[in-house]
């Protein structure tokens, strides 16, 4: 496979990544959201594989395989299991931002990141191709943040977190050192695992507010002690 063809295929993958990011922001149906995230990860894995074909570094191949195992299979399966227990099919609750305004804010984020990195791209030695990858990667990190604070249901927050992690991985493909990438991936996946486990452990019909309500009765124990 020629380098030009690999570059074109990576561009096509980037196009798919943008479309899937837009869908992650705007989806309300949880199953559809999880499937979109799985596809998002699949495209990321394809980008890693194309980098492996282009540069021949085995670490890209490992990243691709790791991404498929964890993000295409394991994490979506856990999230679907959680969703099944929750019996919640749509996420209609938002803090501050509805999907429409989230999409516009995402656009704003992409433009800001584009402008912010334009000042340092020469220092980083980025050509236009890598520059676009860096812009999309960093934008994904911020878009993930936005999903975390704009959604209420924990399962959607978790998706936001995972999208953020996909952004870190994408950023690393284009600019970072690979050992760093592996460290970050493992760390982030562990944290995501903790988040998912907490949902599984805490009972399911849950938002952060629900946790608060559930924990609130424990205050009464201390009140009783004081009264005594």
């Amino acid at each position: 496979m020629t380098i030009q063809l690999i570059d074109e295929l990576i561009k096509v993958c980037m196009v798919l990544l943008v479309v899937l990011t837009a869908l992650v922001i705007s989806r309300r149906n949880l199953i559809s959201l999880i499937n979109t995230y799985a596809l998002h990860s699949l495209v990321l894995s394809a980008i890693a594989f194309l980098f492996f074909l282009g540069e021949g570094a085995n670490v890209f191949l490992y990243a691709s395989i790791l991404t498929i195992i964890t993000k295409l299979w394991l994490i979506p399966a856990l999230l679907k299991r959680t969703q099944k227990i929750m019996k919640i099919y749509t996420d209609l609750e938002y803090h501050y931002l509805h999907p429409t305004s989230s999409i516009f804010l995402s656009l704003f984020i992409v433009i800001i990141v584009f402008l912010a990195f334009s000042g340092i791209k020469d220092d980083l030695g980025l050509d236009p191709f890598n520059y676009f990858g860096v812009v999309m990667g960093f934008s994904l990190v911020l878009i993930g943040f936005m999903i975390i604070f704009s959604r209420i249901k924990i399962i959607t927050k978790t998706i936001g977190y995972l999208v953020m992690e996909n952004g870190v991985v994408l950023l690393s493909f284009f600019v970072g050192e690979m050992p760093f990438l592996i460290e970050v991936m493992v760390l982030m996946d562990l944290l995501a695992l903790v988040a998912i486990t907490s949902i599984l452990g805490f009972g399911m019909n849950s938002s952060i507010e629900e946790f608060h309500k559930r924990l609130n009765p424990f205050r009464n124990w201390f009140k009783k002690v004081d009264e005594k």
Partner: peptide, 17 residues
């Protein structure tokens, strides 16, 4: 908004790539 987002990103891709 989805259409708008994708159209603007296309323009950005064309500027960059």
């Amino acid at each position: 908004a989805l259409s708008f987002f994708l159209s603007v990103v296309t323009i950005m891709m064309e500027v960059l790539l």
